[in-house]
Amino acid sequence: MPLEKKEFKPKIVAFCCNWCSYAGADLAGSSRLTYPADVKIIRVPCSCRVNPMFILRAFEKGADGVIMCGCHPGDCHYSTGNYYARRRMTLLFSMLDYIGVESGRTRVEWVSAAEGVKFSETMNSFVEKIYSLGENVRLGDLRCKN
């Protein structure tokens, strides 16, 4: 009997800032909105806390997509954290794209504590995108040739 191909279950990591997006996720939950269970949320104090290494490590450990959510620019709990995060992530995502990790696998979305609907929609569309891209076979080891 031929072995059946395992169904693709994407691994998706979402870094959510404590003040806006994590609260937005909470609101999505209490409003009974849904988002796929493939998304694993990691709470961070601020989007600016997301060291680029976190994103790389997520990919190295087999993530198929990584999304970062924070307060809308101008609304950061610490005033300016997300402005720095925005530049950092732009450059990092561009670098990842440059080495062959499709830009669709990385995303930044600004979600406020009042935007439960946006949170759920964002996660749904991101997961859909990752399903369409399929498994991320890269970055498990950038240096070894298979």
Partner: peptide, 17 residues
């Protein structure tokens, strides 16, 4: 240095795609 600075109008990371 560019990474220790920002402007309100900076491009969103989605520009990469």
């Amino acid at each position: 240095a560019p990474l220790t600075d920002y402007t309100f109008e900076d491009a969103e990371p989605s520009i990469v795609g």
